[in-house]
Amino acid sequence: MAELTAKLDVRSYTGFKAVTLLCLIILYAPLLVVTIYSFNASNSIASWDGFSLRWYVNVFTGPESTKFKLAAWNSFVIAIIAATVSTSIATLAATGMIRAGKFKLHMLSFGLISLPLMVPEIVTAVATLIFFNAIGFDRGLTTIILAHIAFCIPFAYLPIAARMQGIDDTVEQAALDLYATRKQVFTRILLPLMTPGIVSGFLLAFIVSLDDFIITNFVKGAGVETLPTAIFGAVKQGIKPNIMAISTLLLSVSVIMVTISYLVSKTDKTT
């Protein structure tokens, strides 16, 4: 009987489940291995000497800790500023694109907003470096922040725009009919309804900024490091156990933020 229903079910294919499990193993195995080895007591990455937190202690107090703490601080400041500014710009842009009627430059504006997604990262890196060079802007923390704001905009825009499209404009119309000003409608009706989209947009922009290596590496000034550029520099000399601890910490931050973003979007009833 079970065999018969399996035969009748046109949807399932034998082996697809196994491939899916393989896919998950491939996706998670390297991350799990690094996480496990970050708790290794050994001085070398080659052998397992038992569980220990010594590399985490090393990250915060060891000889390289000043360098990595400064890099982490830079990464965090850049990500907060870039995510805040790009989310604000994206929120205004989404209102202009979706709540302001049809207009001629609609496609062009959308093309401009998605430009950073279409241009390969390494090309954006080269172009931005050339731009700062041409206008004589000294490379440093500011150049990194400006570059990050630009490429974070589409990541913030997409969830915000998706959310805004799900909101029926009858609510706004009703408020306007009751003599609310457009400003009041925006702050008291539109913004609260948009919150889930804005939160996921902000979190995605934050992670994308935190993750960036290539563009940062091009536009950063000498001596200015973010966590990814500092890790890259260290890895070039070989993978050391403290790098695994830092990686695990950074990995946890990403996973936690994506999970928050997921839970926030789950409360979103419109989609």
Binding site: P30, L31, V33, V34, I207, L210, D211, F213, P228, I231, F232, V235, I239, I243, S247, L250, L251, S254, V255, M257, V258
Partner: peptide, 10 residues
């Protein structure tokens, strides 16, 4: 969403 550099190092 995990850092590409970290995934490549892993």
């Amino acid at each position: 969403w995990v850092n590409l550099l970290i995934r490549t190092v892993s």
